[in-house]
C-alpha cells in the first residue's frame, strides 16, 4: 500500500509540472500569435497601399505611399526640415503641449476640487463654466494667435483651453462623489476641513482625475498642433502646413506618423506613472488587456 501511494505521487508530480509548463507555453504562444498577427495587419496594410500606389490604382500625388513617407522622414532626420532640425520641431510641439497640459491640468484640478468642495462657489460659477464649455474651443485658436502672436504662447493657450474642461469636470465629479463615510470617519478622527480636502477628497478624486489625464494629453497635442498649423515659426504643425502648401502629401503623412509616435510614447509614460500611484487599488480584471 505505501509503495503504491509513493508511486502514484511520484507519477503525479511530473505530470503537474508539465501541465503548468504546458499552460505557460500556450499563453506564450498566444501572446506571440497576437503580436505576429498585429505585425501582419500593419505589413499587409502598408504593402497594399504601396502596391496600389505603384500600380496607379490610387493617385500617389494625393495619397502618397509608404516608401515616400519613409524617405521623407529619413530626409528630415538626416538633413533637417526647411524650418530647422526635426528634433527642434518635435521639441517645440512637445514643449507647447506639455506646458499647456500642465497649466490646464493644474487649473482644472484646483478649480474642480474647490468647486466640488465649496457649494457656494459651485452655485456661482457653475453656469459660466457650462457656457464656456459649450463653445467649440478649437475656434479660439485663431483668436489666441491674434492675442499672443506667432510664438509658443498662443499654442500653449489653445492647449490649455482644450485640457482644462475635461480635467475640471472630472475633478469636480470626483470631489463631489467622495464616499461620505470616509469623510465622516476622517472628521471623527480629528481632521479639519483642510485635512479632509487634502487627505480624503484629493486621494479619492485621483482616480477620476487620472482617467481625464490620459484623454487630456491628447487634447494638449491637438491644441498645440492646430495652433502651429494656423500660424507659427516652429513645430510639427508647421511641418504639416508647409508640406501641404508645397503639395507634398508625403510630408503631411510623415509629420502625422511622427506625431503618433510621440503621442504613444507619452501615453506609455502616463500609464507607468498611474501604476506607481495606484498601488492601493485592487488590480481589476479588465486591466490585463
Amino acid at each position: 500500500m505505501p509503495l503504491e501511494t509513493v508511486r502514484t505521487e511520484a507519477g503525479r508530480a511530473p505530470a503537474a509540472t508539465t501541465r503548468t509548463e504546458a499552460r505557460e507555453r500556450a499563453a506564450r504562444n498566444r501572446r506571440l500569435g497576437v503580436h505576429a498577427a498585429r505585425a501582419g495587419v500593419l505589413a499587409a496594410f502598408l504593402g497594399l497601399w504601396e502596391v496600389c500606389a505603384r500600380a496607379d490604382v490610387i493617385d500617389p500625388f494625393n495619397f502618397s505611399q509608404p516608401s515616400r513617407i519613409w524617405d521623407q522622414i529619413w530626409q528630415w532626420v538626416s538633413h533637417g526640415t526647411a524650418q530647422g532640425p526635426l528634433g527642434e520641431q518635435i521639441g517645440y510641439t512637445l514643449y507647447e503641449a506639455l506646458s499647456g497640459w500642465v497649466i490646464g491640468v493644474t487649473g482644472g484640478v484646483l478649480l474642480g476640487i474647490a468647486l466640488g468642495r465649496v457649494r457656494f462657489l459651485a452655485d456661482v460659477f457653475g453656469p459660466y463654466i457650462k457656457v464656456l464649455n459649450a463653445i467649440p474651443r478649437i475656434v479660439l485658436a485663431p483668436i489666441f494667435l491674434i492675442w499672443f502672436g506667432l510664438g509658443p504662447a498662443s499654442k500653449v493657450a489653445s492647449a490649455v483651453v482644450l485640457v482644462f474642461f475635461p480635467v475640471f469636470f472630472n475633478a469636480f465629479q470626483g470631489a463631489r462623489e467622495v464616499d461620505r463615510n470616509l469623510v465622516a470617519n476622517a472628521r471623527i478622527l480629528g481632521a479639519d476641513n483642510r485635512r479632509v480636502t487634502l487627505q480624503v477628497v484629493i486621494p479619492a478624486a485621483t482616480t477620476w482625475i487620472f482617467t481625464s489625464l490620459h484623454v487630456s494629453f491628447g487634447f494638449a497635442l491637438i491644441g498645440a498642433i492646430v495652433g502651429e498649423y494656423i500660424g507659427a515659426t516652429k513645430g510639427l504643425g508647421l511641418l504639416v502646413a508647409a508640406a501641404q502648401g508645397t503639395f507634398n502629401a508625403a510630408g503631411v503623412y510623415a509629420a502625422m506618423t511622427i506625431l503618433a509616435v510621440v503621442a504613444l510614447l507619452t501615453e506609455g509614460l502616463l500609464t507607468f506613472a498611474e501604476k506607481k500611484l495606484f498601488r492601493w487599488k485592487p488590480a481589476d480584471a479588465g486591466d490585463g488587456r
Partner: peptide, 29 residues
C-alpha cells in the same frame, strides 16, 4: 475630540496602508 466612532460601514481609507490608517487619527490631531 473626546468622541470615537466605529462605523457600521467600511470607513478605512483605501489609499492608506493598514499602519497609516491607524496613524491617521493621531496625525490629524
Amino acid at each position: 475630540p473626546k468622541v470615537g466612532f466605529v462605523f457600521q460601514q467600511d470607513a478605512v481609507f483605501p489609499w492608506r496602508t493598514v499602519l497609516s490608517n491607524v496613524m491617521a487619527g493621531p496625525r490629524f490631531r
